[in-house]
Design a protein around this nucleic acid. Structure first.
Length: 749
DNA sequence: AAAAAAC
């Protein structure tokens, strides 16, 4: 497709007759009051704050004002939202979409919406109640894009249906596994030992009593009795099967000494009956590429640094083998330690817990999500997963811990708190997982991670097994990561730090003042059955935009770090469930969250670094489905231009010619740019040497190189390293242009 | 000039 299409777009924009002062942070004297700071009259005041002048501003028919901005070439882009995507329309994800759902009178509709809902219920009221958009839904009544998601679900059939009902048949069968059967069953092997854990989540079978009563004959590798209610709770959710079958040829690099080869089937490695049963109940058919490689590596007790594209099944890639190993090995010393600590405290239920495995995550919602996955794979085992994170009642979390904790999922701050309160000891933590490891080791988190991993009682590297997973892995983070790893294997699945080709990425030039109007155009072009995630750069911006969308009549919600944890979780739930198909979010939602059916990610504000971009758009196009990512670009985003261009090229996306030009200019403007701020001091020659080695290992396509990067050498610090098929997506930043990573963020830091 | 993560 021609790249000339958007040239002259800015002139067209400036010719628009919009009341652009209403743009976010617009230049008029109106002062914005965040919703959570408003009083009970907030709704009214907020309305006034924006006042009717705003409405007149947006009563310019947005779709009409939008069309002229787009030369004919780009129009097809918009029609694409209705299903006529030129180069994607034959893909299963989009072909179910009717062509007319975009145009279809949504303009009238929106005006109705605005009129009716300008003074909506207060924010707290609307939390989760917004079906306004749906109410206007005559327009959107056609179920868009459903085909995309029904497709692979059916595919699971073969393997699944055959085994599903019999997932645990080898455990003694349960032809009569009704309720009574369940209770009888339970009573036999472990009478009096298990009470149901409280805490709605009380996933594991264990409670605080079992430890005392445990005997050596306890075999952790044997499944505990089934629990029909729990089983239904855990596994009845929408299909989580992953369709990666068409990605068998995905490029993979595994480097490090004696790297175990990949599996092709979950049966190819012995993970035990509990794990296999739960895999079946989860309707996982075949391992995803990252799982194929990571599972045998972890089972071989190797440390691992794994890069895999967003949405590629990383969570299960570590949970399955780690849990399997715990089932095989049993609780070991941790059990005794837990008993001892109970005696020391002299009080039942006050014991310190010694988890065998720790999973750290950078956001609370992600921790919760991982925990939910862990509960599935811990079903019918003696492993009790727990989760701790800030913003929630610590007392409740402590009580849950005291019921037993073998696998702990945590955010760093709350974990440190728990450690200092003596509730958690990491002395017997044999498995450490850093999820979204790039974030966990960046400036904000690194000290806490070191506090937890290096400055407490956790076994040292080599004694424990350490695994890191992320979609992106900037060089400086890889260097830090080596502090925690021993003789590790570096696994790169797909293009490291790059984006899935399942995601169609669009970059459009939108001035700040036009962003809102433009956003409405996009939202109106989206089917009501699909979810749209809108990223902004600031918390205030998130409130403001949510407020705006809300008053425009959209069922939307928002998530950011200034909202209460309860509101955050509620928002996520409303979004996931589709009750609020639009969610405005800050970086808090950028990483790891697995929300099915997110068809569109909109970067209302582009982030200041490319990793964040990669993670954000990875919220769509997950598990083999197609997704769309639209980014609003303008003068403020020059810092990301070059990296963005690289990503687009690499993912074989259309590149606007203006972006190419700007990237070229920017590159020259910044020819002397320095290295990243975090390394502006104390970045020794040794580190450079380390970064410089190892590049070549990535040059030989598809070959698993056994050569020596296991542990103390760098990976691909130069162009040769990642510039080939396994690219980290930083091609320009790291090697091609001066060899130093530069990041000048939004604010010029 | 920011987000996130403990209270």
């Amino acid at each position: 497709m021609s790249h000339v299409a958007v040239d002259g777009l800015d002139q067209q924009l400036s010719a628009l007759d919009l009341n652009s002062a209403d743009g976010q942070g617009g230049g008029t004297g109106r002062r914005y009051i965040p919703p959570h700071l408003r009083n009970k009259d907030a709704g009214k005041n907020a309305g006034n704050a924006y006042s009717s002048s705003r409405q007149s501003g947006y009563s310019v028919p947005p779709v009409l004002s939008c069309y002229p901005r787009y030369p004919s070439q780009e129009l097809s882009f918009y029609h694409a939202y209705g299903g006529a995507w030129p180069d994607r329309c034959d893909s299963p994800g989009w072909d179910g979409a009717p062509n007319n759902c975009f145009v279809n009178g949504f303009h009238d509709n929106r005006m109705n919406g605005a009129g009716n809902f300008t003074r909506g219920p207060s924010r707290s009221d609307r939390s989760g109640r917004g079906s306004f958009r749906g109410n206007r839904g005559g327009t959107f009544s056609q179920p868009m894009h459903n085909a995309a998601y029904s497709g692979f679900e059916n595919k699971d059939g073969g393997w699944n249906t055959a085994l599903n009902r019999d997932a645990y048949s080898s455990f003694g069968g349960r032809p009569d596994r009704g309720k009574s059967a369940f209770f009888n069953d339970r009573g036999t092997g472990s009478r009096g030992r298990y009470e149901r854990g409280g805490f709605s989540a009380g996933g594991g079978m264990g409670n605080s009593r079992w430890v005392e009563e445990s005997r050596d004959e306890e075999d952790w590798s044997k499944p505990t009795p089934p629990n029909e209610r729990l089983e239904h709770e855990l596994f009845s959710a929408s299909n989580t099967g992953i369709n990666f079958e068409k990605y068998d040829d995905i490029p993979v690099e595994a480097t490090g000494s004696n790297c175990p080869g990949p599996i092709d089937n979950f049966h190819d490695v012995d993970m035990g009956e509990i794990v296999m049963g739960n895999i079946t109940l989860s309707r996982y058919t075949r391992p995803t590429p990252v799982q194929k490689h990571a599972i045998p590596i972890i089972k071989a007790k190797r440390d691992l640094m794994a890069c895999a594209q967003t949405g590629s099944g990383k969570t299960a890639a570590f949970l399955l083998p780690v849990l399997s190993q715990i089932y095989t090995d049993g609780p070991g010393e941790a059990l005794q330690a837990s008993k001892t600590s109970g005696q020391e405290n002299g009080k039942y239920g006050r014991r310190k817990q010694y988890p065998i495995s720790l999973v750290l995550a950078p956001t609370r919602e992600l921790a919760l999500q991982i925990y939910d996955e862990a509960r599935k794979f811990a079903y019918r085992s003696r492993v009790r997963p727990c989760v701790v994170y800030g913003g929630a009642d610590i007392g409740q979390q402590i009580r849950d811990l005291e019921r037993g904790c073998h696998l702990l999922v945590a955010t760093p701050g709350r974990l440190v708190d728990m450690m200092e309160r003596g509730k958690i000891g990491l002395d017997y933590c044999n498995y450490l997982v850093l999820d979204e490891a790039d974030r966990m080791l960046d400036m904000g988190f690194e000290p806490q991670i070191r506090r937890i991993v290096e400055q407490d009682t956790m076994p040292p590297k080599g004694a424990r097994q350490t695994m890191m997973f992320s979609a992106t892995f900037p060089k400086e983070i890889q260097i830090l990561a080596r502090d925690f790893l021993e003789e590790y294997i570096f696994l790169a699945v797909g293009r490291v730090g790059s984006t899935s080709e399942n995601i169609t990425q669009k970059v459009v030039w939108v001035e700040e003042s036009d962003k809102r109007s433009f956003l409405l155009d996009l939202l109106n072009a989206t089917g009501k059955d699909s979810l749209t995630l809108v990223f902004v750069e600031t918390k205030k911006g998130a409130d403001a935009l949510e407020d705006f969308l809300y008053r425009e009549g959209y069922a939307c919600t928002s998530i950011h770090g200034d909202r209460s944890q309860r509101d955050r979780e509620e928002a996520l739930h409303q979004f996931r469930s589709g009750r609020c198909p639009i969610m405005v979010a800050t970086a808090v939602a950028a990483r790891g969250l697995d929300i099915s059916n997110v068809k569109h990610v909109i970067n209302f504000d582009l982030p200041s670094d490319i990793e964040e971009y990669v993670h954000r758009i990875g919220r769509t196009g997950r598990v083999g489905n197609l997704g769309l990512a639209t980014s609003f670009y303008n003068d403020k985003n020059s810092n990301i231009t070059k990296d963005l261009l690289d990503i687009l090229v690499e993912a074989k996306q259309e590149v606007p010619s203006w972006l190419e030009s700007l990237a070229f200019e920017h590159q020259h403007k910044n020819s002397t740019r320095g290295r990243s701020k975090r390394f502006s001091g104390g970045f020794g020659a040794r580190d450079y040497r380390q970064m410089a080695v190892g590049g070549n290992s990535f040059g030989n396509r598809g070959v698993r190189s056994a050569g020596g990067h296991g542990g103390n050498r760098g990976f691909g610090g130069n162009k040769g390293g990642f510039g080939n098929f396994v690219s980290d997506g930083y091609g320009g930043s790291y090697g091609n242009y001066g060899g130093s990573y530069t990041q000048v963020d939004w604010w010029g830091n």
